[in-house]
Amino acid sequence: MSVLVRDPGLETTVQDTGRLGHYAIGFPPSGALDSYAYHVGNALVGNAPGAAALEAVYLGPTLEFTTDTVVAVTGAEIPVTLDGEPVPTWESVAVRAGQTLAFGQLAGGARPYVAVAGGIDVPPYYGSRSTYTLVGIGGFGGRALAEGDELPLGDAAVDPRAGRRVDEADIPEHPTTAELRLLVGLHSYRLTPDSLERFTSTPWKVTPDANRVGYRYRGAELEFVPREQPFGAGSDPANVTDCGYPVGSVQVPGGVEPIVLLQDAVTGGGYATLGTVVSVDRDRLAQTKTGDHTRFVPVDLDEALTIRRDRAGRLDRVRRSLA
């Protein structure tokens, strides 16, 4: 029971809900960046929530199955084939032993997810199967997949079944200009009011430096309020006394090229952060690609909590419809 990696694609990794609970010693959560696509994929193939799946970016992997099973591709808009024949995405598909799943050219979004019945059965590390490549732990050998890897499959699928399909209305769209809602705050007082205004009015372009650690953007220059730096902060105006970074927080080293920290980011450091993207919108961010544009839309905590509840409700409804 395994999957053979014929072509790894680009930075394809094993991910689950993440390695939570160790942030205070410096472990970022890792885990699927587009949590909705990941969860729906597991629901489609009849896995319990939390089974490990594959996250690819831009290029899908080519995978050969050694066993009859059920798979589902969710996330990015990308053509998928089974032994050369097109198969639908956001739908569970029966695969026979010996068949090969392959991907065409990405049409929208950035990251396809491949869920397989039973999940990818790599050993858990600190409570998670998610890959964290920076220190080489979790997932398959702590690294992105390589040609020739043989991924073990679990046998814990609750109810694997082909032909489950997600309603059109529950399939997210991936426009080339994404709106990310964020709570302004943390050290936003370090930016001049003009710059803070510019941050939320600029259409930021995603640079090639955009991966699971973080996304870097270009589009405007931001200025810090001049001050005598407090003791311990260091001399650069972008610096503050080193502190924890929330996942999703935005920092602007040097006043140019804001960075949104993602699930594999550093857990703390000395850059001023000006706000945090709401957790649900990290899914949208994960489906943006180099060259796309992004706008940051300020929301307050009430709105952020409503967005969160709406998403949880939607996921529950989709799961029930697939059960």
Partner: peptide, 18 residues
């Protein structure tokens, strides 16, 4: 006291280290 999105609360005792 401030909020780091919907999942974090950030508390800065002082801007300077002591």
């Amino acid at each position: 006291y401030d909020f780091g999105g919907d999942e974090f609360v950030y508390v800065e005792i002082s801007p300077e280290m002591s």
